[in-house]
Every structure is written in C-alpha cells, then in structure tokens.
Design a protein around this nucleic acid. Structure first.
Length: 305
DNA sequence: AAGACGGGGTA
DNA sequence: TACCCAGTCTT
C-alpha cells in the first residue's frame, strides 16, 4: 500500500480528473434510489451506450418502484428488449415487489440489507448503497478490480481478497461515491484491459502496473502488455446455441398478444425446418424459460408470464 | 469453481 | 466471421 501522503495525492488527482472528465450519464443526474437500481441492473454485463436509451424509456414506462411492482412480468420483459439477459427483467421486478410488500416500499440503505433481496447481488447492493444512499463503502466491479489492481497491486487480475482490502483502504473520507465512479470511468475510458492509455491517466504517477511492477513471468521478469493480454479462448457460436433460441422464443412472445401462442407455432417460427423430432428440444427450452420466470405454459399455449 | 444466461457493436 | 463485453444464480 502507498504511504498515507502518497495515497492522499492519488485520491486528490483522481477526484480532480473525475470532476473534469466524468462521463455524462443520466443516472448520475438523479438521486432517486429506484432509478439508480434500474440503471445498475441494466448495466450488469451490458455496455453503457446500450443502456442509456433503455434506461430512459424504462423510467418513463415504470416511473416508480410501486409502478414496477404493479406491472405484470410480461410488461417488464417487453420493456427490456433488446438488452438481453432477460432474467434481469424478472429479477428487477421481483425486487420491486419484495420491497413494496416487505419494506414499506423503501429500498434498504445498507448494502448487506440490499443484498438480502433476491436477485440483487453483492455488486449491485454496494452500488445502490453508495450511489443512492451515500454509504461510504467500496464498489468493486471488474473495471474497478482492474484499475485498483493495476494501480495499487501492479496486477491486472488481482485476487478478490487482495482487491477487496485495497478498495477499503483506498477510499477517500466522505467521497466514496465520486471515488468509485471515478475508478469506473478510468476503467471504461482509459484503463482498458488490452489497450490502456496510461499517458492520459490521472493515476499514472502512482500506478505500480504502469511502472512495470507486479506483473512478472515465472522468473520474476516484468511482462510486456502483449504478454498480459486477456487470455483468449474459442467461444462457441451464438447462433444455434441454447441462448440464441431462448432469446428467439422470448422475442417472439413479446410480439404476440398477451394470450400467447400455440406451442407448435413457437417451434415453427423460431427454427427453420422445425419438425416433430424437435419437440423434445423445444420442450426443454420452454421448461427452462418457465423455470426462469420468462414464460408461462397453459396446456398447449405459451405466453409471457 | 464452473457453467448458464443475450445481444449489439466493431474489426 | 471473430472477438469484445463483465453480475447473479445455480449446481
């Protein structure tokens, strides 16, 4: 860890940089915990540019926690398109219902209480607590993990325990929200995993990774950036995957009326050359979707729940 | 610890 | 076509 003086300088420079260079994001203009919750769920696994328009639409459609709780899952699933990971739509509404039923319609302020809500994990709990309620705690997503890992530990992929401790120790007194968001912006705009722009980075003078510390090969020799690149592995093709067809099914049901469609029609629409032999395959997909709360089956009909 | 879970964008 | 992105739940 840095000396206290050195850490203070780093904090000051990063916060200055954030004041001047922060991204203009709609959820940074609101104090509404519900809106911040919506943004954080949408931002899970999803790029900022894709979230912005859907976030604005979603809040028009469901302006409050109560409005979301009173909607049907089908309405929320429709409003989610095309963000993907559709279970998030089911989850965020389930969160709204839990809160309206159990907590008088108010989101808890503490991360530990937020994390007890089903569908709200440790990252989102920390983010809502800090950004909506000013809780002075670390918020560590993979951008923050990489940025703090590089600056303080000299490692692009630090161990979770190590980065958790570093994140707690590095928090500037009373300025957790700005600090955490500054680290996210640095991660998103400067400290890219494979193409970092260290010359523009406010943390450059304190960064162990930029100084060539930390990341070493088995002989203790510093590695070049090329040698520390994200590991590559062949990812299976999306088209033709179970994910792909699940998405097609949900998307088709979005376009259907609330009463849904006959199951036989679903198969024919989503898969070219669908035959009787594909029925068990379709059954498996549908029961998975039903388990996830994305589909309801009644007899031979299929619809959004 | 590992796998499932979307879909759009860029090269 | 190939690659990138980056939380939560389940097993």
């Amino acid at each position: 860890m840095l000396t206290s003086d050195s850490l203070g300088q780093l904090q000051e420079r990063v916060l200055e940089w954030y004041a001047a260079h922060q991204r203009d994001l709609p959820w940074r203009k609101t104090q509404d915990p519900y809106a911040i919750l919506v943004s954080e769920v949408m931002l899970q696994q999803t790029q900022v540019e894709r979230v912005i328009p859907k976030y604005l639409e979603f809040l028009q459609r469901f302006p409050t926690l109560e409005a979301l709780a009173e909607a049907t899952p089908a309405e929320v699933i429709r409003a989610w398109s095309p963000l993907g990971y559709n279970q998030r739509a089911v989850r965020v509404q389930a969160i709204a219902r839990q809160v309206t039923e159990d907590s008088h319609g108010r989101l808890p302020h503490e991360a530990a209480s937020l994390a007890r809500l089903k569908g709200l994990g440790p990252y989102t709990a920390a983010a809502v607590a800090c950004f909506a309620f000013g809780v002075q705690g670390p918020v560590v997503d993979t951008n923050v993990r990489r940025v703090l890992g590089r600056i303080l530990l000299g490692q692009t992929r630090p161990a979770p325990k190590a980065v958790a401790q570093a994140a707690r120790e590095a928090l500037p007194q009373g300025r957790a929200s700005e600090w955490n968001q500054a680290l996210m912006d640095i991660g998103a705009t400067l400290c890219a995993i494979n193409d970092p722009r260290c010359l523009l980075c406010p943390a450059r003078p304190w960064c162990r990774w930029a100084a060539g510390e930390g990341e070493t090969d088995h002989q203790g020799k510093a590695q070049t950036l090329a040698e520390t690149r994200a590991p590559y592995w062949v990812q299976p093709p999306f088209k033709g995957s179970s994910r792909y067809y699940r998405g097609r099914i949900v998307d088709y049901l979005r376009s259907a009326s609330a009463g849904g469609v006959p199951q036989a029609e679903v198969g024919a629409v989503i898969k070219e050359g669908f035959t009787q032999e594909d029925i068990p395959w379709l059954e498996a997909l549908l029961s998975g979707l039903e388990r996830d709360g994305l589909v309801r089956r009644e007899g031979e009909r299929v619809r959004l729940p």
